[in-house]
Design a protein around this nucleic acid. Structure first.
Lengths: 121, 121
DNA sequence: ATGAGTGTATTATATATCTAGTACACTAGT
DNA sequence: ACTAGTGTACTAGATATATAATACACTCAT
């Protein structure tokens, strides 16, 4: 297993990995995505786990599965942008909620984030 | 089951719940924490799950367990502040990392978070 | 001493996730 | 037709999490 967080299902992390590559332009609309077997052997996970991730992506309209051929990123760029924004939104809401519950004020949260972003430069 | 996120172990969420109440001042250093049985029946979870959360908190030095009596918040306020900051740090790092991977710039991330905090006012 | 309320420990069961292995159907190039 | 590479489907087993039920040990008020 490579690069996966243990407290989150691997199939979810795979789906997010594909989405992230797509929104960053590493995969272009219509591009072929590695097959389940390729991806599995590259990341050292079970093919079944990859299949589940790809099925989720297909359900969300981000990937088109062509039996016998492989998996392709959708050409529907709106879908991609929507998925990107939704994931960002979800991440932000959770983060802001958690920090609020830890008793930090709006200003403190902004300050902490700025420091963090600076460090990550 | 009440108020628990399905994609995170309940015992972790319980431990975080106690920590959050502590750093917000809803529980004071040295205060008694509900017993495992009380907490379990109040939150509609299994006592064993609560026990595990309390054991984790004890391992982190946030809670002192007194057999036959109950569980007490530590009087070591430094430990509490450390735990608070560590959890905040972890949350922020994950958030910033996720948004970076979604292709957002530093400025965009700060802007998005500010908007989110504004909405949550 | 007794009893109510604690923490602790153990066993059993259920579910989700992940792995492993196998088999089958589809597509394209030869 | 054949073959290699695909997606799909299924069964089986391992692990983590959560529940359920029970028993035992400790503390304190009575």
């Amino acid at each position: 297993m490579t690069d996966f967080d243990t407290n989150k299902p691997i199939y979810q992390q795979i789906a997010e990995d594909i989405l992230k590559k797509a929104v960053r332009g590493e995969i272009l609309p219509g591009d072929r995505i590695p097959s389940a077997r390729e991806y599995a052997s590259q990341k050292l996970v079970n093919p079944n786990t990859v299949v589940r991730a790809f099925q989720d992506l297909e359900r969300e309209g981000l990937v088109v599965v062509k039996r016998g051929l492989g998996n392709y990123l959708t050409t529907d760029t709106t879908r991609l942008e929507d998925a990107r924004f939704q994931l960002a939104q979800k991440t932000l809401i959770q983060c802001a909620k958690d920090l609020r519950e830890l008793g930090y004020t709006t200003k403190q949260i902004q300050q902490l984030l700025s420091q963090q972003l600076e460090v990550m430069k």
